[in-house]
């Protein structure tokens, strides 16, 4: 038997417990039936244990999503924690699936588990990556779309961590606008 040093068994606790979800678009089932909780974790090592053993987002079939949300918040508009909120949306072009998507998603995950948003951590609900043939999307979901200053600070931090060039803007859309939109996209409440 291998003798394991106690140091090897120490795990680093996270500020929040996070749950990873997976969505696969099976049109024969209800939307909610297609959304599955993979597992929840609350240490750095358990995050990596999960991340290292699931498929990279860029290799998922079109129509699939990964979501990482605080434990207890479901990755849907209807959840009590999400319904007054919105999301910062990063739209990727088709080329970026191979060049940027996995890096963007990992960086977003590290922002979440590492509490990169500092005092605004309570505004953060989670994030979702949508794999779609028409264009992949990364969304950072927040709790309250009316909190303008907080929302803008979160957007700026996200843009900084993803190293999105200054000249490229990203928009924030309230879930209530997205749910009632007439066209293909909801209006931006904020932009950075």
């Amino acid at each position: 038997q291998q003798i394991v040093s106690p140091d090897m068994l120490i795990k680093h606790p996270l500020q929040n417990r996070w749950a990873m979800w997976f969505f696969k678009n099976d049109k024969s089932k209800e939307w909610t039936a297609n959304l599955k909780l993979i597992t929840a974790f609350d240490t750095v090592e358990d995050f990596w244990g999960l991340y290292n053993h699931i498929q990279k987002a860029s290799r998922l079939p079109s129509g699939c999503d990964y979501s990482l949300f605080k434990d207890g918040i479901q990755p849907m508009w209807e959840d009590a924690s999400n319904k007054n909120g919105g999301r910062w949306l990063v739209n990727l072009n088709k080329n970026q699936r191979q060049t940027e998507l996995d890096n963007f998603w990992l960086e977003t995950l590290l922002c979440l588990i590492g509490e990169a948003f500092d005092d605004l951590t309570d505004d953060i609900c989670g994030a979702t990556i949508n794999i779609r043939n028409k264009g992949d999307k990364l969304g950072l979901w927040t709790r309250d779309a009316r909190r303008g200053d907080a929302t803008l600070q979160i957007g700026k931090k996200l843009k900084e961590r993803l190293k999105i060039p200054q000249k490229i803007g990203i928009g924030f859309q309230a879930h209530s606008d997205t749910a009632t939109k007439a066209g293909s996209t909801a209006r931006d409440r904020y932009r950075v």
Partner: peptide, 20 residues
Amino acid sequence: GKKHYDREFLLQFQNDYNAI
């Protein structure tokens, strides 16, 4: 009292004993 981890700190554990 909050647990903040920067990206470099988090990345060093990707291939840690407990993670693999």
